[in-house]
Design a protein around this nucleic acid. Structure first.
Lengths: 289, 289
DNA sequence: AGATGCTATCCCATATTACGGGAAAAACGA
DNA sequence: TCGTTTTTCCCGTAATATGGGATAGCATCT
């Protein structure tokens, strides 16, 4: 700890505790610094940053100066730094997938190829319904095909709707659950309490299932997609005929859908923590109910 | 050009042509790479990046690997890179000024202190009107004071409205200009053609003036504020009594308002190029009119 | 007011880190 | 199939970034 020599050997790296070997130290460190900023601490001083990152103040100062020069951070006041305009610039530059469709395209293909069942992309509409916005069709002769692209569908019908409904803010789900549910197949869940329990389960598992609830003979798994503001924006689903989709397979596939949906969420800038917040806001804990 | 020696001295720096001395080379270079991505080229290969930045492919490869590791870029396909999720994450993390007010606060104070006249912050509403959302008052005994905070005001009335109207998409301004304009003072511009000419001028100059057009005895300069999607979101204004605000001073102050408004725009992530696009979209060139 | 931390900034000798060339490997196009 | 372009890997080199220390500016406590 004590500086005996003029210049002791530098620490071998390791700033934030992440694994070694990413290549360029300065970039790691710069990102570590950027990560210090958050909703809880939108502004930071140099030594504050130095302490949380474990860097020396000299280094922190130099990095910050360079980052400021490049617009990664800005000096919001004397001895006060905040995230810089470059980030918002790039985020809004149009270089990002403008639509959910673009963001999901690749993941959908992969998911379809892995399962060889039809993959659906569903989007939450402002009207608190959902619409199928894209599909990647299975190659089987007998397969699910979405003919109703863009058509608004009530959230309580089918796995995709349930996957979305489970993560929507509770004010919204309360509103949706307040209205009577039309039975479109014999298996449709019409009892609000039963649906509530189903949603609770979906929230815990991170996916929802449907066995002929909306279309007779079709079984579906769906997992939600989040954006960078921690809101559900839609979901991915795998659908197929009941002959190929017994409960066991549906449950197996749930792992793949979840992974794929999460992959899309990441592209949209979602973070684990953000989703946690979302989950909490969707289910007012038993405390305040 | 020919590699005579084993390792010739490295170029003295200078990647993108920007001035020297920012401090940390790797950060400069990383940002230069990030800047390569844009609406025109959302995906790039390594050698493509190396060519546009002037870096060697080795260096580019190493930097990219590190940036990918940190989420600054992502590999969208084999040999295809795009901007990474970290950017959207940080941009949406809530560490940014949530409101126009927050973003403008500092600039407003500075502008007020420099001019010692009342500075107003105006926001474009969805209803195609504007509202005063904040003010920094002059210290003079005789000064402009906004009493109507939050009140919707038609865009054709006064300098702030004109500054906004001049940069709004032309569909919108066409709609606003289609309706009759109520005269609220003798100086109000009610002739659509006259207003159109005025807007054209404001678009060219980057600011708008008003001499008792909305409130008798008050002269105002205003300059627009843009966001990271290149949309006008509002404007800053300086207002004062006519005795202190002859045309000459108004014109002088226009420089300060413009600078301050631009400063706010930058905080919101606006870029020069984005604003150029905005300007073009606001004024369909004589070609297509 | 004076004293005492704390923070930001600057400078410098040092060697660690990142550099670019070159070559192999892999993908692409013909 | 072969030639070309692009990506990846390795390595010796020195340029680059590093951390310590010193200075000066603030804020808080006594």
């Amino acid at each position: 700890m004590s500086g005996i020599q003029g210049t002791p050997p530098r620490s071998t790296g390791e700033v934030g505790g992440r694994a070694r070997g990413s290549g360029v130290q300065s970039i790691d460190r710069a990102v570590t610094i950027l990560r210090c900023f958050g909703p809880r601490s939108p502004e930071l001083g140099i030594s504050e940053i130095a302490r949380t990152t474990g860097l020396s103040t000299s280094t922190t100062h130099r990095l910050l100066a360079s980052m400021q020069h490049n617009g990664l951070v800005r000096q919001v006041a004397e001895r006060r730094y905040a995230l810089g305009p470059l980030l918002v610039q790039l985020a809004g530059s149009g270089a990002f997938p403008a639509s959910l469709r673009d963001a999901a395209l690749q993941a959908m293909r992969e998911l379809r190829d892995r399962s060889d069942e039809t993959v659906g992309l569903h989007e939450l509409l402002a009207s608190n319904k959902r619409a199928v916005v894209d599909q990647a069709e299975s190659h089987h002769a007998l397969r699910r095909t979405y003919t109703e692209l863009g058509e608004p569908i009530p959230l309580p019908h089918g796995a995709p709707g349930k996957a979305i409904l489970a993560f929507v803010p509770w004010e919204v789900s309360a509103e949706v659950l307040g209205e009577p549910i039309e039975a479109v197949t014999p298996a449709t869940i019409t009892d609000p309490d039963e649906l509530r329990a189903e949603l609770e389960r979906a929230r815990a598992d991170g996916f929802a299932m449907s066995f002929s609830e909306r279309t007779p003979g079709i079984h579906t798994v769906a997992a939600p997609i989040f954006d960078n503001r921690a809101r559900v924006v839609g979901c991915l689903s795998i659908s197929g005929p009941e002959v190929r989709m017994p409960r066991a397979r549906v449950e197996t596939l749930s792992i793949d859908v979840k992974r794929a949906a999460w992959q899309v969420s990441e592209v949209l800038g979602a973070t684990g923590e953000a989703v946690r917040r979302c989950r909490e806001h969707a289910a007012p804990s038993s405390a305040d109910r």
